[in-house]
Amino acid sequence: MQSLIIIILLLLPSLIFASESAYVFVIDENYNPVQGYKLLETQRDDIYISKIEPIKKWITTLRSQLIVVQDGYIYPVRDSIIVDKKKGIALLLIDFSQRKPLYFNPEEFLIDRDINVLIANKKVTYLKVKTLFPSEIKKEAKKGKISDYTALAEQYEKTGQWNMALSVYEDILKQKQESNIINKIGVLYYRLGNFKKAREYFQMLSKDEKTIARLVGICIIEKDFEEALKLINNSGLNSAYMHYLKGIIYYLIGNKDRAYIEVFMLIPLNNELAQNLRDLLR
């Protein structure tokens, strides 16, 4: 199982911690988790509602830092704002540009899951978020203004507001069917961990190497290795990366002999990938 997780991380982002919930962890100077706390999401993808306790723990733990964990990724907390000191409620702002794959299993560490005070004050806190961080008003998609609407979606995407970006891209798609928009929607669903929807959109695209690799990546995450091999074999592609993916799949299902055949086929195509696959099989 550990090998499978490592390989999936190398191929495409995955959901190690399969949960829609978000948590903030205090980690020490060696990046080891000290304690976790459950969070509430807000109307913005980069802001979370938290109790004050993790901030206190961070302050009192020497050379520590705060990270938010969600959907198999970690995000460093770039700022914290106490919005109600009496009730112990704060906002945590994360840095999307520093996103990294999750490197530990949160369930193995102590997590404070009591968020009753956050739920009880959710509406008031949402209003404070809206006041402190007014979002750009979503423009109406009109004929002849698709480019402006696309720019808005791209801005949401760049700032990590993936749900907002997804909503805008889907509205654009209703106005105009374009492969690049379909691709963006598929990628966003993938990032959000909705592999079923991501697959639906990727299957609308031409079956080039990038699309096949993404569909194969989803199959690997879902452990549907038979379907992954079928996708590669039916694609008609004979590229180095396809042989590399086949080698990994054969390794995952315990067929090292077939995996080594892919190594030999890789050597004249891409020696670096061949070496990587060989190292994995040793």
Score class of each variant (00 low, 15 high):
L215S: 08
L215Q: 11
L215I: 14
V216G: 10
V216H: 06
V216D: 07
G217F: 12
G217P: 12
G217Q: 09
I218G: 08
I218R: 12
I218C: 08
I218N: 07
C219T: 03
C219G: 00
C219K: 14
C219S: 15
C219P: 01
C219Q: 13
C219W: 02
I220A: 07
I221L: 05
I221Y: 14
I221F: 09
E222I: 01
E222T: 12
K223D: 05
K223N: 13
D224N: 15
D224P: 01
D224Y: 03
D224W: 01
F225P: 00
F225T: 06
F225R: 07
E226F: 08
E226W: 00
E226M: 06
E226V: 12
E226C: 01
E226A: 13
E227L: 02
E227C: 00
A228V: 02
L229E: 13
L229S: 03
L229H: 08
K230R: 15
K230C: 00
K230E: 14
L231Y: 15
I232S: 04
I232F: 10
I232K: 06
I232W: 11
N233E: 15
N233I: 00
N234L: 10
N234W: 00
N234K: 14
N234H: 08
N234E: 15
S235D: 06
S235H: 05
S235F: 08
L237S: 06
L237A: 05
N238M: 04
N238K: 13
S239R: 03
S239E: 13
S239N: 12
S239D: 11
S239W: 03
A240Y: 04
A240G: 09
M242N: 07
M242K: 03
M242S: 08
H243E: 13
H243Q: 11
H243D: 13
Y244G: 04
K246M: 15
K246W: 00
K246T: 12
K246C: 08
K246V: 01
G247N: 11
G247T: 07
G247E: 10
I248T: 07
I248Y: 08
I248G: 05
Y250A: 04
Y250W: 14
Y250C: 03
Y250M: 03
Y251E: 09
L252M: 14
L252R: 03
L252S: 09
L252A: 10
I253S: 05
I253M: 13
I253E: 14
G254H: 10
G254S: 10
